[in-house]
Computed example of a mutant assay.
Amino acid sequence: MDGTPQEITTLVGREVYSNNGVYVGEVEDVRLDLDQEVVTGLALAELNRELFEGRIQRGKGVLIPYRWVRAVGDVILINDVIERLKKPEDETEVAV
């Protein structure tokens, strides 16, 4: 992120991938802190079924913290922490 202001609406509809290239979902909405005028989270829909299977009801989305975002361009790249969800044997808590 280069610090250049962007219209928030430009985030909606962008695909989200982990740093490792795993598709996570598509931005449906953004969560804002109006006092600080910053984006605090991304609401994702069209989720990667394999990644979220058994954890999120079909038709539901997830909210990821914006601090996980590493780059915004044609797509949005986030930390690969999201991939920990794929391993049910790994009981590490991931707030989504």
Rank of each mutant, 00 (worst) to 15 (best):
G3I: 01
G3N: 01
G3H: 00
Q6D: 00
Q6V: 00
E7W: 03
E7S: 05
I8W: 05
T9N: 11
R14M: 09
Y17N: 05
N19K: 13
Y23Q: 02
G25Y: 00
E26I: 08
E26K: 14
V27M: 01
E28W: 03
E28D: 08
V30G: 01
R31I: 10
L32N: 02
D35S: 03
E37D: 09
E37V: 04
V39N: 02
T40K: 09
A43F: 09
A43N: 12
N48F: 04
R49F: 04
E50N: 14
E50M: 08
L51A: 09
F52E: 09
F52L: 10
F52W: 12
E53F: 12
G54A: 10
I56T: 06
I56H: 08
I56S: 09
Q57F: 14
Q57A: 15
R58V: 03
G59H: 08
G59K: 05
G59L: 06
K60M: 14
G61Q: 04
G61R: 07
V62A: 12
L63N: 14
L63C: 12
L63Q: 10
P65V: 03
P65D: 13
R67C: 10
W68D: 06
G73M: 02
G73I: 05
G73T: 08
V75N: 12
I76D: 05
L77V: 14
L77Q: 11
L77T: 15
I78R: 08
V81I: 15
V81Q: 14
R84E: 09
L85H: 08
K86H: 13
E89K: 15
E89A: 15
E89G: 10
D90Y: 10
T92G: 08
T92F: 13
V94A: 12
V94Q: 11
V96K: 07
V96Y: 08
V96Q: 07
